[in-house]
């Protein structure tokens, strides 16, 4: 039964990984852009929530209504007037630029909030759960996270598949210069993509901050998990990202269970191993398109 529980908890944890990975996956899928500051942006969002909930004296949940739009706007502006310069066939400029941003965010957070760990307290909802059996209890909060992840990823996929703007996203991903011939402003599309990426990672950052304590330098570790989820699922596939997040979540909780029972491995290590196996066996990821 512990094993079943480990898998159930892993699926729920996977929701958080998937949410972290959404923006990374979308930005890579549409513009071949790898944002190394992605994890730090999540931490930044969590700190913003700390500040807002302190000054406005509201539940951190409520601050989402402020933090997410602010982050989205920030993503739009930074892409439109910054990152767009570094987009091209060569990924190196974008890597350097976003690495710089990561360092800036970390230092700014250290400066403003010190190195102390912080947490977001949303009250009793965080710990409430439904018990199915003695061994299997499902927390409402992890269920909420997974639910949000599924809604976000399915919603984005539907948006890409069935709307005029989504079609423009896909056309731009295929061939930006021909997209321009269709009257599509590719620079604007990139900015909207980054706005969505920032917004989703802000939600993920808040959820992370509610789940556990966090500090200014925790971003890169979150980036690694997000990156692994994207690669496991397949670059550029949003369904794959959801699947990748869940596989990574299950790998971690099952790895922890192995650690408990046999005293080998550990959760994150098991997750990294799965990542390496997928990378070796199926480099394009489970649902990746493997472009020619």
């Amino acid at each position: 039964m512990e094993w079943v529980n480990a898998i159930v908890q892993g699926i729920l944890l996977g929701g958080l990984f998937a949410l972290f990975a959404t923006g990374l996956s979308l930005a890579f899928g549409v513009m071949r852009f790898v944002n190394l500051a992605h994890g730090d942006l999540a931490i930044l969002a969590a700190f913003l929530a700390v500040s807002f909930s302190a000054t406005l004296e509201v539940n951190p949940f409520v601050t989402m209504a402020l933090v997410v739009p602010i982050m989205a706007l920030g993503g739009y502006v930074i892409q439109r007037f910054g990152f767009n310069w570094s987009i091209g066939t060569d990924p190196l400029p974008s890597i350097l630029v976003t690495f710089g941003l990561a360092v800036v965010i970390q230092n700014a957070l250290l400066e403003r909030y010190s190195a102390d760990s912080q947490g977001l307290d949303i009250g009793t909802f965080e710990t409430r759960s439904i018990e199915f059996t003695d061994d299997i209890a499902v927390g409402w909060f992890p269920v909420l996270i997974l639910g949000v992840a599924v809604v976000v990823l399915v919603g984005l996929q539907l948006f890409l598949s069935f709307t005029r703007m989504g079609r423009a996203f896909r056309a731009t991903a295929d061939d930006p210069s021909t997209a321009r011939l269709m009257g599509i402003n590719d620079r604007n599309i990139y900015a909207v993509v980054m706005a969505i990426a920032f917004a989703t990672v802000a939600v993920a950052g808040l959820f992370l901050g509610i789940r556990q304590t966090f500090g200014p330098t925790d971003g890169p570790a979150q980036l690694i998990f997000a990156f692994e989820a994207v690669v496991i699922g397949g670059l550029g596939s949003l369904w794959g990202t959801l699947l990748g997040g869940i596989i990574l979540g299950v790998a971690q909780t099952v790895g922890n269970q192995v650690d408990v029972e046999f005293n080998v491995l550990s959760g994150p290590l098991f997750g990294h191993l799965i990542f390496l196996v997928v990378l070796a066996v199926r480099p394009s990821g489970l649902l990746g398109r493997g472009r020619g």
């Binding site: 005029r164 079609r167 423009a168 896909r170 056309a171 997209a179 269709m182 009257g183 599509i184």
Partner: peptide, 9 residues
Amino acid sequence: ENLLVGGHG
């Protein structure tokens, strides 16, 4: 969709 995207504007 290729036809529709031509009418994006």
